[in-house]
């Protein structure tokens, strides 16, 4: 009868001293980080045609759809929109960018001028966020390729080996997996849509899956930030290798 969903919230250490920061600090930080990330991504996607360095391939350029069909104009564009759409419609990032960019709201209980024209997610284009599940399916395909890339990153010209790049790509794949499988829409698909898990007798597989995803879902925001950082790091590492700024370190 344990209630796993609640433990994380009630187990907070008592008396976390409330240092009162101005309410705008958090949204400004979010805005800056996400803004820089977007600018970097645009630079990466619009000014580069390849993300491959030997056996490493940047997550921005995988899978190499352009290569399959011989298209060589802005190679990353064929794929990079998928994770972008996934993150844009993600329930966690929605919290972040509505707070950071729209200031709806800038902070909890902040006093703001009344803006009666707000329409939430009832109108297009923001109503598009309701189709987050399709972005999930698409990103699942990408994720399979990223795992393939991660594995291939361990196979160098001279056989199996471990480089810093291999590890980065592996960590990236792991974090993205957690991020994708802790998704609210996925949680809904695996059993959240049911009202009763035991009405046909014993609790079903669906219940167990839903429980597991629910447990991950608690940390969806953490996975979201961690995987954002790992994607960025992976791409930056490979870009720097390609530019010859740094050299890959082989661990063995």
């Amino acid at each position: 009868m344990a209630q796993p969903l609640e433990q994380t919230t009630t187990a907070k250490t008592p008396k976390a001293k409330s240092k009162t920061r101005p309410y705008w600090v958090e949204p400004v930080v979010t805005m800056t980080v996400l803004g820089v990330w977007v600018l970097y991504s645009l630079w990466e996607v619009l000014f580069h045609n390849s993300g491959t360095y030997h056996n490493y391939i940047s997550p921005y350029f995988s899978p190499g759809v352009g290569e399959w069909f011989g298209w060589h104009v802005l190679d990353a564009l064929y794929v990079a929109w998928v994770p972008l759409v996934f993150r844009f419609s993600c329930y966690y990032y929605r919290r972040e960018y509505y707070r950071g960019f729209f200031w709806d709201p800038p902070g909890c209980a902040a006093a703001d001028k009344p803006r009666p024209r707000y329409s939430g997610e009832t109108k297009w284009p923001l109503a598009f966020n309701n189709l987050h599940r399709y972005a999930w399916f698409l990103v699942l395909i990408v994720l399979i390729f990223l795992w393939k890339d991660a594995v291939e990153a361990f196979f160098f010209k001279n056989g199996f080996g471990v480089g810093v790049g291999s590890l980065i790509l592996l960590v990236n794949a792991v974090l993205l997996t957690f991020y994708s499988f802790s998704c609210h829409a996925f949680r809904h698909m695996v059993g959240g849509d049911k009202d009763c898990y035991s009405c046909d007798g014993k609790p079903t597989t669906s219940y167990k899956l839903w429980q597991r995803v629910s447990r991950w879902n608690v940390f969806h925001g953490t996975w979201a930030w961690a995987s954002l950082a790992s994607v960025w790091a992976a791409d930056l590492y490979i870009r720097l290798l390609m530019m010859g700024v740094i050299h890959d370190v082989r661990l063995f």
Binding site: L5, E6, T9, T10, Y91, R94, R95, Y98, R99, F102, D104, P105, G107, C108, A109, Y118, S119, G120, E121, T122, L126, A127, N130, R133, H184, A185, R187, H188, G192, D193, N217, V218
Partner: peptide, 29 residues
């Protein structure tokens, strides 16, 4: 649809109900 899942309600809930994650988002789905 007016809710844009910014989670302030969850933050202030003295009963620690995960309002956004467990009620609103599943309903949105």
């Amino acid at each position: 649809g007016m809710c844009n899942v910014t989670k302030c309600c969850t933050e202030v809930c003295p009963q620690h109900i995960r309002i956004t994650d467990n009620a609103i988002i599943p309903l949105k789905e």
